[in-house]
Amino acid sequence: MQVNRRQILLSGTFLWLFAVGGTTLVALTEYSTSAAITENERQLLLRNLYALLPRNSLDNDIAADSVELPAAALLGTDDASTAYRARLAGEPVAVVFNSIARNGYSGRIHLLVGVYVDGSLAGVRVVKHAETPGLGDAIEIRKSPWIKSFDGKSLDNPDTAGWRVKRDGGEFDQFTGATITPRAVVGAVHATLLYYQQNADMIFD
């Protein structure tokens, strides 16, 4: 009995030592890489934001000038989401929303939607999606320029009936073999514009 307990204790201590050792190593690595990782994430965000808004159109630190928006059906969000505000000499220029198209072919499509203060679109980019490679993934800018067809569009241009893919009688192209994906993106962008129209005051305080 006594021997057994001793062995159990020894084994337990041994395992514990390794847990402490392993955790220490991971913590040290985390400590020494966290600054670089945060900076990488910031650079990626800036790269995405500047893809929508020309650099000379704003002069604030857009990545830091963010506002938390509560969950909203029009944005497709279940939780609070972050929107980034662009300003030039203190005056609002545009806002970039994180919106979600919930009815993609394979789940949700995460979008960055840039809207100028006058309600026209600065641009749209797909951040994350799981659409079929070769068919639905033409929503990515590196696969196809389709996503640029939103540039300059607004709630009046085209009118509500035009905010659909061509197959549904609207203005936006679908892809060969994939209608569901572009339909979801067009719907989400339109909803985001509606959200902006209803909440513009709140966004820029």
Partner: peptide, 9 residues
């Protein structure tokens, strides 16, 4: 993983 995240994001 952390190293790749820091060097090759």
């Amino acid at each position: 993983e952390l190293t790749i995240k820091a060097l090759f994001y």
